[in-house]
Write a protein that binds this DNA or RNA. Structure first.
Length: 803
DNA sequence: GATTTTACGTA
DNA sequence: CGTACGTAAAATCT
């Protein structure tokens, strides 16, 4: 059945979808099926009445198999067949007849039909010119059926977009800001501009944006804005060549230094831009007023944080980020960053996250210093580790060749699956699923090999494959001269040099205050730092928070006379959970043992896992056996994050039935845990927002269900410890780092370097910074700190430090 | 050549 | 049906 446009003739909003579905086809009305239900939810979320909207689709007849591609000649859906052209003409007529103030393009097909653009992700949330009928405006968002099938986040994006559409429905024209942009000006003009800003006393803020070639510390271009619409840029490099003479360059940097000292500075990812100014050019920016990356992280940790996305909800401008590299790109970035900052300044207070924001801002100098300082590599050790690893790999590979009689690329998941399940006909292993509705996926990784090795204890192959894979992985962390590839022990890979060292044998990492930097939907960002390859100094293996302990041996202090001190929070997350769940026994234990040395704790049997076993099995603390303690440890760990019996069975290498029984015993002995979990669920139901004891808020957007719950259970302890550590680290940096060097941040541990004779003093300083009481459930909670000292990151010995 | 998937290291 | 993170190599798409 043909499905035509419905709705009032004088509507201000025109919603345009893709094509009718089953129910639409049956009734002749657009958006009445499941996608229609989702659309209704979206509209009510945005405060739009469906009855006040015109509703239609680009295609008026349901395509075969619901595949819109049926109406196109090409796979990309850009060359329409005649019938679709006819329907587009009908849509055109509808728009001309009803003259809506805004046309909402629901999904990529509507976006393409109305504007000629492809790519809904970069266009959504931006009002753009309608090409189908010039003079009208289009506001694109996701298609309701996409919102329906994805895990919840696009729902909130779409609601945001529809709210914007509601605003745009009150006037017909596009109202882009009038930018006053000067790009690629000469040094004199630029310096004149920046100095004029400095002298203008009425001017409070300045936004700065810097471009560099990835992985180099050289600045290509600087953009400065003094409002959301006024900006100027200067080029310092044309490709690899200077765009001005040395004196002019110095005058530009002088002007920037002056600007940094007299205005409230705004940047997007200041740790990067400030680092570039500092590292090569010795221009300091001591006080950043607002980093929009950090602001967005505090306000909307669950949303993407790239400038394009921020502008889609903080501003009302055209989508400039998807345009090809153009010279006005950089000053536009600067101006829009300014506007975004003004939006967030209000938003931070509205959402009550000012303290989180201030505290994250204070982390910038620490993260940056640690990035620029880097870690030193002892190349003699590195070489020795490399050879040892290569020898082990060589031996394992040789044995595997005799066993299997052929060459196999053990890094290839496909070849591994063929070997295990086709050639050897072993029982197929599946990956753990996130939910029962997901499709089972075959796997041939480490866990599968482990399981098979239990099933076939006499087959030596599994252990050898595991050994070889382990060594190959290790080489990525140690560095590799490629000799195994030369010898044909492992297949040749695309040569990208691993573990490049700086001329001083240092490696560097970007510490990302706002967590995950990748642009996919997986972001959670609970406040822990992440670590990734340095964008300023491209040396090292990248992420430093996942280096295996074997490879840690080659990391040494910058000064060979120094030692490394590790200070880690003792049973950090377990302490937080104990207080959150009001576990009286555990609270007593943590309180009494606070300040003891590890040795004292061991003597007095202050041990969480022993205690767990004691409550589970009803035996006296001193009678708990090793096996019982291990069971206690596994169950506490698993249940804190609501793991299932399969995980416990796997970890304890017992049957599923036994694991289920243990789980019941544990939950009976620790009833508070389930009470706490229910509390969390209630808080989620009430407003989807959780607040940690340190005031960090997170809005959970995932679809209602167990995955959401588990993520929420882990949020408070994980985030609290992350914040506690970072607050402590900033304190230590500000108070003691003239003498000490901050070396590493590993989520619940801080590493610093100091002179051997200063170890005791440094430990005292670290304790002073790290022990800071928090209020949880009316209790004053202190998380204890243990110390280790060593000459390398990999060889550290426990210290019995008396508080 | 670019993008997605698989696997694997840490807390 | 632990969570969080980033990266390399293979697989797959265009």
């Amino acid at each position: 059945m043909i499905v035509n446009t419905v709705g009032p003739a004088n509507a201000n909003i025109f919603l345009v979808g893709e094509a009718p579905g089953e129910k639409e086809d049956a009734t002749g009305i657009p958006f009445v099926g499941p996608a229609g239900d989702t659309l209704n939810r979206l509209l009510s979320g945005a405060g739009i009445l469906r009855t006040e909207c015109l509703i239609s689709n680009v295609a008026r007849v349901r395509p075969a198999g619901n595949r819109i591609a049926e109406y196109f000649y090409d796979k990309n859906c850009t060359i329409p067949k005649p019938e679709l052209q006819t329907w587009m003409e009908m849509l055109r007529q509808d728009i001309i007849t009803h003259r809506p103030n805004v046309i909402v393009a629901l999904g990529r097909t509507a976006l393409w039909a109305l504007t000629g653009r492809t790519g809904i992700t970069s266009a959504r949330g931006y009002a753009i010119e309608c090409k189908l009928v010039p003079g009208f405006k289009v506001l694109p968002t996701y298609h309701p059926s996409f919102v329906m099938q994805s895990d919840g986040k696009p729902y909130y994006h779409a609601v945001m977009d529809l709210k914007k559409a509601r605003y745009h429905s009150t006037f017909p024209e596009l109202r882009y800001p009038k930018y006053n942009i000067e790009y690629n000006v000469g040094p004199r003009r630029f310096v004149e501009y920046v100095e004029a800003l400095c002298e203008d006393r009425m001017l409070e803020y300045a936004s700065v944006d810097v471009e560099n070639t990835r992985g180099t510390p050289h600045i290509n271009e600087i953009g400065v804005a003094h409002s959301a619409t006024d900006a100027m840029s200067v080029k310092l490099l044309n490709g690899r060549y200077p765009a001005m003479n040395e004196n002019d360059e110095i005058s530009v940097y002088r002007a920037m230094a002056k600007l940094f000292n007299c205005k409230k500075v705004i940047m997007q990812n200041g740790a990067h831009d400030i680092g570039l100014f500092m590292y090569r050019n010795h221009v300091l920016c001591r006080k950043l007023w607002m980093d929009t990356l950090i602001a967005s992280h505090c306000c909307y940790p669950e949303f993407p944080r790239d400038l394009g996305f921020l502008a889609s909800y903080a501003l009302d401008t055209f989508p400039w980020k998807d345009a090809d590299e153009r010279p006005e790109y950089n000053p536009l970035d600067a101006a829009n960053t300014f506007g975004i900052a003004m939006f967030f300044d209000k938003e931070i207070d509205r959402l009550g996250v000012r303290s989180t924001f201030n505290f994250e801002m204070s982390e910038i100098p620490v993260a940056l210093t640690m990035q620029l300082q880097g870690l030193k590599i002892d190349t003699t050790v590195q070489y020795a580790l490399m050879r040892e690893t290569q020898n082990r790999a060589r031996a394992a590979a040789a044995e595997l060749k005799t066993i299997l009689g052929k060459d196999i690329n053990f890094s290839s998941s496909k070849q591994m699956q063929e070997l295990l399940y086709d050639d050897l006909k072993l029982p197929v292993q599946y990956k753990r699923r996130k939910s029962v509705t997901q499709e089972r996926k075959v796997t041939a990784g480490k866990e599968a090999l482990n399981k098979l090795s239990v099933l076939y204890p006499d087959n030596p192959m599994f252990a050898k494959v595991l050994e070889l894979k382990k060594q190959i992985t290790l080489l990525k962390f140690i560095g590799d001269d490629g000799i195994l590839e030369e010898e044909g022990v492992i297949p040749k890979t695309k040569k990208k040099e691993k573990m490049v060292l700086s001329p001083n044998n240092t490696v560097h990492t970007s510490y990302n205050i706002t967590g995950s930097s990748t642009d996919d939907e997986g972001r959670k960002s609970f406040g822990r730092w992440s670590s990734s390859g340095s964008i300023i100094l491209p040396f090292g293996s990248g992420n430093l928070q996942n280096v295996p302990s074997y490879a840690r041996q080659m990391y040494v202090p910058h000064d060979p006379k120094d030692v490394i001190i590790q200070a880690d929070y003792v049973q950090a997350e377990a302490v937080i959970v104990a207080f959150l769940t009001n576990d009286v026994g555990l609270i007593k234990m943590f309180t009494e043992s606070f300040g003891m040395t590890p040795k004292e704790r061991a003597e007095k049997q202050y041990d969480v896992h022993r205690y767990t076993a004691h409550t589970m099995f009803g035996v006296k603390m001193e009678d708990v056996t090793k096996v019982q303690r291990q069971v206690g440890k596994t169950l506490r760990h698993a249940t804190n994050y609501s793991a299932g019996p399969a995980v416990i069975a796997n970890s304890l290498k017992c049957s599923l039935d036994a694991a289920k029984k243990l789980l019941t015993v544990y939950l009976r002995a620790n009833p508070n845990l389930e009470v706490w979990h229910r509390q969390i669920q209630q808080q989620l139901a009430a407003g989807r927002t959780l607040t940690t004891p340190l005031g960090r808020k997170h809005f959970f957007m995932e679809r209602w269900g167990d995955t959401l719950f588990r993520s929420a259970y882990s949020y408070i302890p994980q985030s609290t410890i992350g914040d506690l550590l970072n607050i402590s680290m900033v304190d230590f940096y500000e108070n003691y780092c003239r003498e000490r060097g901050l070396y590493l941040q590993l989520h619940d541990a801080i590493y610093v370097t100091c002179k051997e004779e200063d170890v005791d003093t440094t430990m005292r300083e670290m304790r002073r910074s790290m022990i800071r009481p928090m209020l949880i459930n009316g209790h004053e909670v202190k998380v204890d700190v243990d110390f280790k000292v060593g000459k390398t990151w990999g060889n550290m010995e426990e210290i019995n430090y008396h508080a």
